[in-house]
């Protein structure tokens, strides 16, 4: 309940933040809303010696639409996403994160940078094929969703890199569904599925994306299920048979409340449900 001691800095610019992270090495951690990091620190499962708090850095809170994409500042909170239904599935997923108090503090940048495959937003980013901008010592770079998540709690970000913005393609013309399976309302997903469907003029499936939460060490795409549905009919049977492929290639870890087989089963069921919702939208 008491964290180990640490130093605390509040840089006012991104450059300053990056410099602090760089100069202090791996033991320096970036702090945004703190709702991934502080719980670990309180249990002393993490003990950084320096926290670099981004709260005074301007320009990281925006949610705005520009051309065909949404630009979301790294410090936009889950509550901000929740309150922006125009975002579509990202808003629907954010609304299901933990509880209101957590959503009032947790940020999209923090959640993505933490790289927890059980969190909701990483699978959404992957399904939407979004990207993040990250500011490092050598300037700003773009990391596509498919490259961001590398392993369990491991991302492509260097330790002195800061996510500044998340870009999600707007999903005009797409239907979506986010199915999150939990034991209790406030829990992390046992399995979550983010589905997007674009209907063709004839009502068939022009395109489809399925992202999986907590089905492996990173968020995943259910590509076999996507392939089975893409270009075909969106009737119940087609969706059901496509969803049967949802767990192909996954190797989810078992835990107290779910065996790997059960998680694969959930992935199939939830994929069907999310696709049905997406196809109806």
């Amino acid at each position: 309940m008491i964290t180990a001691p640490f130093d605390y800095e509040t840089p006012e610019t991104l450059d300053e933040a990056v410099r602090m992270l760089h100069e202090n090495g791996e033991d320096a951690k970036l702090l945004a809303g703190g709702h991934s990091l502080l719980p670990l620190m309180k249990l002393r499962l993490a003990a950084p010696t320096l926290l670099v708090d981004l709260r005074l850095v301007p320009g990281l809170h925006h949610i705005q639409r520009e051309n065909g994409s949404w630009r979301i500042g790294a410090l936009a909170r889950h509550a901000d996403l929740q309150d922006t239904p125009e975002l579509g599935v990202a808003s629907a997923a954010a609304k299901q994160i933990a509880d209101q108090q957590v959503r009032n503090r947790g940020t999209i940048g923090g959640s993505l940078a933490h790289g927890d495959p059980a969190s909701d937003l990483p699978a959404v980013l992957v399904a939407l094929e979004g990207e993040v901008s990250a500011q490092g010592r050598n300037g700003l770079r773009t990391i596509p969703a498919g490259e961001l998540f590398q392993d369990y709690l491991t991302t492509a970000l260097a330790h002195d890199e800061v996510i500044t913005e998340v870009r999600l393609p707007a999903t005009d013309g797409w239907g979506y569904g986010y199915e999150k399976f939990t034991r209790r309302a406030e829990d992390w997903a046992m399995v979550g599925v983010c589905a997007l469907v674009k209907k063709g003029a004839d009502g068939s499936c022009e395109d489809v994306r399925v992202g999986l939460t907590n089905m492996g060490s990173t968020p995943l795409r259910a590509t076999a299920a996507e392939q089975a549905l893409r270009g075909g009919s969106l009737d119940g049977d087609s969706i059901a048979s496509a969803a049967e492929h949802a767990a192909e290639g996954t190797d989810p870890p078992g835990d107290l409340n779910a065996t790997p087989d059960y998680k694969r089963h959930l992935a199939r069921v939830l994929t069907r449900r999310a696709l049905v919702a997406a196809a109806q939208a």
Binding site: M1, T10, G34, L38, K42, D99, Q101, V102, R105
Partner: peptide, 26 residues
């Protein structure tokens, strides 16, 4: 210890937060 119970809920700038998971510095 894990931001679950909510007994520490206060309002910060008008919104509810769990004050066990906010640094006083923040």
């Amino acid at each position: 210890d894990t931001t679950n119970c909510g007994a520490c809920t206060v309002h910060m700038n008008g919104e509810s937060v769990k004050s066990c998971t906010v640094l006083a510095a923040q």
